[in-house]
Write a protein that binds this DNA or RNA. Structure first.
Lengths: 189, 189
DNA sequence: GTCTATAGAATGATAGAC
DNA sequence: GTCTATCATTCTATAGAC
């Protein structure tokens, strides 16, 4: 099952939990967020949360899936163009758009230690990463290409939530970020 | 008091707490790390931890200070060269070196939601950031320069701990990372 | 400086009424 | 689907002996 298919299975009530959890994760971290906090944010009791998700871990995975689903949609658009330089540019443009529009969430998903651990053991996520890097730097990249790929993803994910750009509007940030990251991708091997 | 001066005040016993805390923060996040875990890692009791630090918050700040002290040393070396292009390159080279050598710690400090919150309210840290960006992009940068600065710091901090480069040795990673980030700094306006 | 013991609150999770 | 009530566990933090 793809990330997108998984993400679409969540009900409206589960979505409310996911949305509230994401906000709290961004502020307090996953470890610092209790089920009680999530329940209070929605205005229900802890037991109501447990009706929607069996464990806290399932909430963490659901939060990640819903966000990464947007990344998968961007990836599919790029893969449809093959593996050309145009496909790479399409991917970059789409990823930058998604990252800017979901500024707060992106950084949380990409940097919270607890989420990183869960995702590292999460099969659908690993497949997504492999597909992403295949489009970006090909099948069997050397050290230079791997560093470039790491820089690229870290740059996009980290920069959109950076204090220095919080007051920039989405369009300005998208344009500037795309300009800078394009140079990174186009760097010679 | 500068960050460096603060960091040097910690005793050997406090250092042991700080070192153990840093490892646990990287694995479990700050919110997911209890004083009991830190005590167990060192082989002492919780009360012994409380003798060294009055609260958990003080441990978090101490961990950040000890790491950021390295950044401050790099910054001082660059400031000694004025605000030329050479000073910028010196800063970049030193920051990349420190980041690679302290791979694990860098990402934790830069991305854990709890640490980010503490640092945002921590005066010595704010001064450090202002100095850092002054050398990097000057005094009153426009949107383009700010995005570039955000990309640069996010890229370095995020890339060194990225799964795609974990098996690269320090020297290779330093050289490649410096090559890529130099292009970022040297980008026109 | 390190220990035991403990207070008081909050945690994840479950059972069962409505 | 949401509630109250409750479980065992863990948490931060403190007091006081050695």
């Amino acid at each position: 099952m793809t990330m997108r298919e998984r993400a679409q299975r969540y009900s409206a009530a589960q979505r409310r939990v996911i949305d509230a959890a994401l906000d709290l994760f961004a502020e307090q971290g996953v470890g610092g967020t209790s089920l009680q906090m999530i329940a209070d944010a929605i205005g229900v009791t802890k037991a109501a949360i447990y009706y929607q998700f069996r464990t806290k871990e399932e909430i963490v995975i659901a939060v990640a899936e819903v966000e990464l689903q947007r990344l998968e949609v961007a990836l599919e658009a790029a893969e449809a163009e093959g593996s050309s330089a145009e496909a790479r540019d399409t991917l970059l443009r789409r990823v930058v758009e998604v990252a800017v529009e979901r500024r707060g969430a992106v950084r949380t998903i990409q940097s919270d230690p607890v989420i990183i651990r869960f995702l590292a053991e999460h099969e659908p996520f690993q497949q997504l990463i492999v597909r992403l890097f295949t489009v970006l730097v090909g099948d069997n990249p050397g050290p230079a290409a791997r560093v470039r790929a790491a820089v690229l993803t870290a740059a996009i994910g980290g920069a959109v939530a950076h204090p220095f750009v919080t007051d920039l509007d989405d369009e300005t940030l998208k344009a500037e970020l795309l300009r800078v990251t394009r140079r990174l991708v186009l760097l010679p091997g």
